[in-house]
Design a protein around this nucleic acid. Sequence first.
DNA 1: TCATCCCGCCAGACG
DNA 2: CGTCTGGCGGGATGA
Length: 383
Amino acid sequence: MALFSTSASSEEGSRFTYCRKQKSLGLLCTNFLSLYNREDVETIGLDDAAAQLGVERRRIYDIVNVLESVGVLARKAKNRYSWLGFGGIPLALQELKDEGLKENSNVQDGSNHSKVSDDEDDERLSIPYGSSQEDTANTILLTQHSTLSKTDNRKEKSLGLLTRNFVKLFLCSTVDLISLDEAAKILLGDARDPSLMRNNSAAKVRRLYDIANVLSSMNFIEKTHHPETRKPAFRWLGIQGAMETEGVDPLFVQHSKKRLFGTDISNISYKKAKIVSTDEGSEQIIKSDKQLTQMKSKSLETVADTGELKPDSNVYQFGPFAPVDDQFPSSCEYRIRELERLASDRPIQYQNHALTDLFSHYMEAWNLWFGEVSGKKHVHTVS
DNA sequence: TCATCCCGCCAGACG
DNA sequence: CGTCTGGCGGGATGA
């Protein structure tokens, strides 16, 4: 009966076809977010996340790295991250922006610099601040990263760093539409001399795709096409986009025509074409790791395994502005500035009525919330 | 065909 | 030494 049994993708295959989209980092990120985006989450264990989501740990690292770069997570210890939530985004972006601006204005004022937290300084990407909004992308240059600590040569290429630089690209220049190809060139080395094209940017592009996927899932960016070129490119949506993601159940928010994935939160499914046809053509899927064996044993004990229960976590619950514990002030000011900047800086972008509405909505919500806070905490008032 | 980008090997970092 | 991290790029999938 060996007749047509050799074809590994017989009729059985139709039921379990491997679908790449269901395994995308973007989807995984969405699920990750929906899994942990609750006020009672404080800490996240990587093992647990991997188990809950049904993926190998390696993938969690990918997501966690970019989420950390954007302020949603903070590394606390080995295997352990603390959840800051969407409320951590504004501050993180502000820091990235300051950092980026400071870097590019190669003015070393010397002395004190109240740099907030964060780690090391790396390569500097200098962007001609306030130049015409067209050629900016091309003029962006990145000066030498000559001196490198042998050891941390590795770090220089981390996903996290790449993410931060990618975001800075948007925050510190007027560019709001860029293709990953361009981004790769810019973030790699000299954009001024395309002929030199530092080591394969192609490899970097792969990384950028990864990053773009998770940023997309958070609505930080959106995939579109360049007006003229028709080339695929990404547009920066920023905080509005990201905040819009929160509140709604991110799980099935396939806004507009975005990819529609499966709906299982744990995207456990069949591994990539690891199909082997045994002797008689009976096929079977090999799930390489032990990961699958240990899933689904969860209970929501993920959360406060550190023992401490959060006192009264839900004091502030104003929609998209549910803040993170402390640092209100900076976050507040930042948001105001950001919103104002958006209003004035890019009038074009807001002739779209949908965005305008969104903007005013946020402004309104913001004022409400800010009023609350300032009333309580006695901070300065909105002018 | 070319654009995307998942998978998992395996080398450093860490304990 | 074992475990945790996470570069890296082969090659499958999607358009």
